[in-house]
Amino acid sequence: MARDQGNLLLQKQLADLNKNPVEGFSAGPIDDADIFKWEVLIYGPHDTPYEGGLFKAELNFPKEYPLRPPKMSFISEMWHPNIDKDGGVCISILHEPGDDKYGYETAAERWLPVHTVETILVSVISMLADPNDESPANVDAAKMWREQPEDFKKRVARCYFQNWISFAFWKKIAAINHMCLKISLINRRTHHICKKPLRY
């Protein structure tokens, strides 16, 4: 029963995202047979060290979705105070719901069943722009972000340069489109390219 509800909800969100793509990311299930595993491409937000980068991540929804949060982890290499070294995203809205007796986080800061793929990714993008270094998942990144901002920028650039190599084909598309890399374009082409081989 719970699985059916999650399934319906995710199908609905997929249809909504295909109809009205949101700027800044592109998302869809990895395999049409399993709606509970999504792949996400996030475009590095403007005026941040991540600008110009493309970052691939996965969202794994539990069968109890929307009562429990999905787990999000970056597949691409990432350097960020709130992303652990294995790529796991650590933000309060993805923490299990309820009141913990230690009062570490209030129920209102934690997961809510009204969150969707869109609201989660919007939060993650704003986390990229504005890290929370008070509760870091990657202490080294947090320290560098606070104390050596220039080194931090370089470290991030090194990250997404590596990502760019693996996304080399995106560059080709960008060149064809007069170097105008807009996420709307990626949105339109992502699934097409992933499913069919490129023909020149």
Binding site: P97, G98, D99, A107, P113, V114
Partner: peptide, 16 residues
């Protein structure tokens, strides 16, 4: 009801 058994807040306004 299923949600309130996990967290006793309104999902829309987060009011306890």
């Amino acid at each position: 009801d299923d949600w309130l058994m996990r967290a006793f807040i309104c999902p829309s306004c987060m009011e306890p």
